[in-house]
Design a protein around this nucleic acid. Sequence first.
DNA 1: ATAATATTGTTGTAAATGCAACATATTTTT
DNA 2: AAAAATATGTTGCATTTACAACAATATTAT
Lengths: 160, 160
Amino acid sequence: MSMKTKVDCNKVHYTDSIYYELEQTSRLMKKITSQLFTKLEIDITMDEYAALDTISINAGICQRDLAKFILKDRANTGRILDSLEQKGFITRFIDTKNNRLVKKMGITENGLKELNMIDSKIERYLKSLTRKIDPADVDRVQETLKSFRIELEKVVEINI
Amino acid sequence: MSMKTKVDCNKVHYTDSIYYELEQTSRLMKKITSQLFTKLEIDITMDEYAALDTISINAGICQRDLAKFILKDRANTGRILDSLEQKGFITRFIDTKNNRLVKKMGITENGLKELNMIDSKIERYLKSLTRKIDPADVDRVQETLKSFRIELEKVVEINI
DNA sequence: ATAATATTGTTGTAAATGCAACATATTTTT
DNA sequence: AAAAATATGTTGCATTTACAACAATATTAT
């Protein structure tokens, strides 16, 4: 056996790493959710849905803080909010935060209705995805991912 | 305590689900890796890197099969390969698979050199990301993610 | 045999995304 | 007080992406 072959056999590949596994799984999950939204004729995007849910939890949040939550830049966060506002699911108002003028927002009655409607529509579909996995494993993965994400947040340069 | 408040407190939010945790962690990881590629002045994209690694493992793979591996559509897979070929990291050649004409590819000497160079450059940076996490947890998460991904692959409609 | 369907790759296009530049207002520095 | 730096949101643009349409070839159905 040549040295070259031996080295190649023992080589650690990026595509076998947890980083790539994470990306692949996430990409698949995103595609499935997107297909679900289309199939169920949900009339907001997945990003809008995530933003709406975040707003429902953090009432009166300003745009930049929301951007940090949803990991989008300020530009695209603004665009997502334009769409949600135009559809009547949120209201935006000028306020101050640390003596600065900011645009805050809140979910509307219709927005809450839409959010609950989507939740109830997708719940059983999403749950069925993990039916083959031990629920304890699911919880453990979520916990570890969260710890991992918190470590990542310390390292990443966020210029939002 | 009003019923409304009680219901809202017990509400299960999408943004607290493992699906969203997965997306958030993956987005952060991608951003960090991208910043690393810029910082280390690596002159191919992350997608090209993943494709190159996949090609190095699956010599003689055709474009469509590669597309399935890297979860891109045929169009963008072709574009990634155009770039890798133009940089001299892969060679493409016409061949047949099941009696069909296909474009197969292989990694070049320079491509392998580039791949190993990138691997050695990023290895310690990536490893340091999980230094606060128990290695056993990392392995377990990767295993569970893989099982999860395999389940997802059964559900998703892949028209590649 | 002819038509319909399937496989593979490419091209075109519209939407999403990130990034830089800008506008406005406030704080900090000199 | 004037200048520089910071915070917040918007606009413009170049890149990425997904999806549909197409071209070429092979298989299957009628």
